[in-house]
Write a protein that binds this DNA or RNA. Structure first.
Lengths: 147, 147
DNA sequence: ATGAGTGCAAATGCTTTGCATCCTG
DNA sequence: CAGGATGCAAAGCATTTGCACTCAT
């Protein structure tokens, strides 16, 4: 991954290394704000601008992807391959379903006339394990719309 | 739908009726800002606050859903049933795949241990018909990550 | 050394909120 | 006519940008 960084002509700064590590270690895909607060202890002088600059540089190099799974802040995913996610209605937790093997149905079929499909991803919504066990009807949950 | 509005204890104001109509007529799920600018001619005095107040009131009544399909503004969908969407990488167009019939595979299977699934939705990403025909590699498109 | 990268602060864009006024039911 | 809804303005977050300074190469 560091190789990829240099290959893109990017310099290896402590800020970038820390962000990269934090991203790689976290399957919940942290937001820019989350990264900033987590790294404040380690890099007290780092600014938001650096976090955003780094994340957009990484995104441009194809080393991570910005994902809009919920209204509000964007989450950054070091796994650039299309894959599925589960999102908790109650606490907002994002769970990566990267490892899941799916049936080999043709995924290049056009969902609508003329639309050239590049990727398909699923979003599972519901309650995470913690929220499921903690409450029958988790705080702040939208009323289930069923399916 | 008006019935549903009243059932929720909401008053029928011209602003709400206009927003509701605009929402219903538009399969691309407009953002709050888009609704505001479209209705400016019809309701010159309407404010952003009213658009947002109305949209959150509708959301609370289960008459629409806020969808985060792309970073930036949230889109509002009058179809509260889980369904699929296609999003253009180039121009950001959202296409509703509401009518698509899918195979009846068990969709309540847990994507990850302990996660209680409420709904599953797919997001197709690629190029819309317009962008596909206009360019070989549409302006502003992220490099295809393939699948 | 030299230009990319950082830090700071101001700016932007989307959304929310407080409050006085207005209008639907 | 009463309470909910609107309009206006200010405030709140997430994110972007400009610019002088610093540091990785």
């Amino acid at each position: 991954m560091l190789v990829a960084l240099r290959a893109g002509g990017l310099k290896l700064t402590p800020q970038r290394l820390a962000i990269l590590r934090e991203l790689a270690d976290d399957p919940t895909h942290p937001t820019a704000t989350e990264l900033f607060s987590r790294l404040r202890a380690e890099l007290p002088s780092m600014s938001f601008a650096t976090v955003y600059n780094t994340l957009s540089a990484l995104t441009e190099q194809g080393l991570c992807v910005a994902r809009a799974l919920e209204p509000g802040a964007v989450r950054f995913d070091p796994n650039v391959e299309p894959h599925d996610h589960a999102v908790c209605d109650s606490c907002g937790l994002v769970v990566d379903i990267a490892g899941r093997v799916r049936g080999g149905s043709p995924r290049t079929a056009e969902p609508v006339a003329g639309f050239a499909v590049r990727s398909v991803e699923r979003v599972y919504r519901g309650w995470c394990a913690d929220c499921s066990s903690r409450l029958e009807r988790p705080t702040g949950a939208k009323q289930a719309t069923g399916e």
